[in-house]
Amino acid sequence: MVESPLVRALLRAATALVLAFIYLPLIILAVYAFNESKLAAWPPTGFTLDWFGEAAANPAIRTALLNSLVAATAATLIALVLGTLAALAVQRYDFFGKNTVSFLFVLPIALPGVVTGIALQSSFKLFGVGLGLPTIIIAHATFCVVVAYNNIVARLRRLPRSPEEASADLGADSWMTFRRITLPGVRTALLSGGLLAFALSFDEVIVTLFAAGAGTKTIPVWIFNAMQRPNELPVVNVVALLLVLISVIPVWIAQRLSGGEIARGGR
């Protein structure tokens, strides 16, 4: 051990401070969701559950929630199919330009969201595609592929090849081998990659604002618009808290499924 007791104590204190910095805004947000007052002033004046009821009764929120669920589900399914195909190609074959594949998939989240958003919007407009739920799904699927792909590639790399070879030796064709051997082997990776893609899509706001057009709102887009209207703030607090829970819970499950190998992902 190299660190002196003083250094260790200082590091412990710094760790506590940084953790407090990370969690303080989320705690304050949770407190506000139960705040009696309509005003956003701190400290809260009293405890109430009324805003949850008001949020549940708000038709705009329900429509936005439905849009978010549909978009996230569809984008996740597309991302899983594309991610699985690409992962199989990269892990099971050797070909020219193999390293470029993962680079291409990372691009949609590596470049600024505003660039991805405006690029997609400009080509939707150029080709006369009306903005709405389908364009949101296309946009989300594009940047969700990378999380599905990463999870499945990581699993395929660890999966032993011998069962697949045995299956082929015993006369199974490649489709049957895929269905009976490979697919069960990557099942949990599909599930955790899917959950991460779902969370990524459910939270996304920048690209969505460009791809959605004026009429269609997802939950983050609803929050974005509503937070500029002071009398909606108490309901925004509630929806914001629920949004955090809805996206953190799938990630927590995904993390348990993958044995903690997921470190990071989208924004």
């Binding site: 983050p220 955090v244 996206s247």
Partner: peptide, 24 residues
């Protein structure tokens, strides 16, 4: 890792409530 996945927009919103004049 967990807060990384909490909604980006919600975190910005939380900071808005903290930073505004009568906030935390």
């Amino acid at each position: 890792t967990m807060p990384l996945w909490a909604s980006y927009l919600v975190k910005v919103y939380a900071w808005r409530t903290i930073l505004q004049g009568n906030g935390f």
